[in-house]
Simulated scan of single mutants.
Amino acid sequence: MLWIFLAIVVLLVVATFLIFRVQDLSHFDGNEWAVNEVTPHPAHDEVLSRLKEMGRASKGLKGKARLAAVRQHFDRLGAEAEIESELRPCTLPKGEWVIAPGVNTQRRVLYIHGGAWSVGSPTSHRAVTNRFSQVANAAVFAVDYRLMPEHRFMDGIIDCREAYTWLLHHGPEGESEAEFMVVAGDSAGGSHTLSLIAWLRDSGLRQADAAVALSPSTDLTLTAPSNRDNIRSDAMLGPIFGGLSKVPLPVIWWGTLAAFRLSPTNPVASPLRGNLANLPPTLIHASTTEMLLDNASRYAAKAKAEGSPVELHTWQNMVHVWQIFTPLLPQAEEAFEDIARFLERVEARSD
């Protein structure tokens, strides 16, 4: 029986190597990026309190009940946000227009919300899309893409692609050509953002004028050091995903393949592992203490090495996707001011 067990182990090891072929990208570590120093502020404690409240909302629940509770909590936070923008629902493609007063609606932003591809909605991220409309002087379309586990991962990808191509020719008032296009997203939506701009390049469609990714997931192989080193310092993702540090990476890869129906090395799910040449100007934000820090820094380093214009700006000790806590958190406002300056630079270079 021992030889049968050993044969199975050998077959699994060989199959893992042949199927996943995880390339070592550690040579992209160690780059120095712009760091925004942060002075402690009372709002930081309020943010941490809200994160604990999210954990309590699903405490004791399992499966579908837990997922439903987390989704409801996320949406409630967004619904309670004080915004100035007009909201217009859209059914095809499914989503929500967010239009700040006086903006140019021929300037458009496709916003792709985060939430681990299973949580979040246009409602949950209204604080973000409201500010994005203001700083970009644009109409924002928050796409309500299909979520896992009810739908396949690729269903969400398809929804984002279709929403972008629709936005090129449609605004809040109907058919009209877009003058300026931005793709933006956070966390899982940041992954979709980076995947989308690569797909646009390969498809020969009109590329976005700029992209913005907030604390993006870029690599589902979880091989970057911060995925494990920053578990304790990441107040949002640490409690949720920290347990994965005890699971061998090959087991995680097989689990990802089963859940996503894609290899974790597939660039559609892990944009870092694709071709990063000839991409539009891209701004990435990340916190120095979040688990996805090295995912962001590796993407920025690889994109720059392949000739694409990318900027990575980091903030000290911020929670994952701290921008969602605008206007409560001063650093969230700083982040949107940084986005405004980035878009101004992009337009200045294109003139």
Rank of each mutant, 00 (worst) to 15 (best):
F132P: 09
T256D: 04
N36V: 14
E334C: 13
A57W: 08
P101S: 10
I19K: 15
L222S: 05
E334W: 08
R50W: 15
D234T: 03
S287I: 05
W253T: 04
T221N: 06
L77C: 09
A68P: 14
G185Y: 03
E173M: 07
A198N: 05
F336L: 02
V346S: 05
A65V: 09
A136H: 09
A213C: 15
A163V: 00
L11H: 05
D75I: 09
P250D: 01
G274Y: 00
R146A: 01
A65F: 15
T223S: 14
E334M: 06
R206V: 09
W199T: 06
L237E: 11
S215Q: 05
L87E: 02
V212C: 06
T218M: 11
C90H: 05
T326M: 12
G174S: 01
E177F: 12
Q72A: 15
A303Q: 04
V119P: 05
L92I: 10
E177K: 08
L244M: 10
L67G: 07
E96P: 00
V251F: 09
A259N: 12
I231L: 03
F141K: 06
F17W: 15
V70H: 05
G204Y: 03
F20V: 10
R273G: 04
R146C: 02
N275P: 13
E150K: 13
K62Y: 15
